[in-house]
């Protein structure tokens, strides 16, 4: 107590008390919003991989009409989502979009051409459906 020197003690006046909860809440929400809109940087490539696989299947199944169209659309949509959300997977996403696009385009051409041909030769579609039923 003898060594205690009152001159070194600072008296603090008019301390502003920060509402830590309010401050931290607003900071947290701002941080979360920013983080949520950033691309996924943890290396996850789910959309890109599924887009690539759907694109390959769309090319293989382009002769199956609607199945090829569905796979092609899935590949393109997932590829676009992957480019927006997954930073590390642009190459795979672009490959998926290209493959899906090729499958989709050819499947649409086949369906349109088949529709046009059926209007000229109605028996052709009947024969095709019969062959399909017989195969199953």
């Amino acid at each position: 107590m003898d060594g205690f020197n009152n001159d070194n003690v600072e008296t603090v006046e008019n301390v502003e008390t920060v509402d830590s909860n309010k401050g931290s809440y607003s900071e947290t929400t701002a941080y979360d919003t920013t983080y949520a809109s950033e691309p996924n940087a943890n290396g996850s490539k789910v959309f890109a991989i599924i887009s690539l696989v759907c694109g390959i299947l769309a090319i293989l199944c382009m002769c199956c009409g609607w199945f090829g169209i569905i796979l092609g659309v899935a590949a393109v949509v997932l590829g676009i989502l992957s480019i927006k959300k997954e930073e590390d997977a642009k190459g795979m996403a672009i490959a998926g979009i290209v493959c899906g696009g090729i499958g989709l385009l050819v499947a649409i051409i086949v369906l349109v051409t088949a529709g046009a041909l059926s209007s000229m030769d109605p028996d052709a579609i009947t024969d095709y459906v019969e062959q399909l039923e017989n195969s199953l």
């Binding site: 002769c63 050819v106 041909l117 095709y128 195969s135």
Partner: peptide, 21 residues
């Protein structure tokens, strides 16, 4: 053994990328 008829082949009379698989 299921011989699924290829719509691409029926329409264009050409091979599709999956033909022969």
């Amino acid at each position: 053994r299921i011989k699924y008829p290829c719509a691409f082949n029926r329409v264009t009379h050409l091979c599709c990328p999956g033909c022969g698989g």
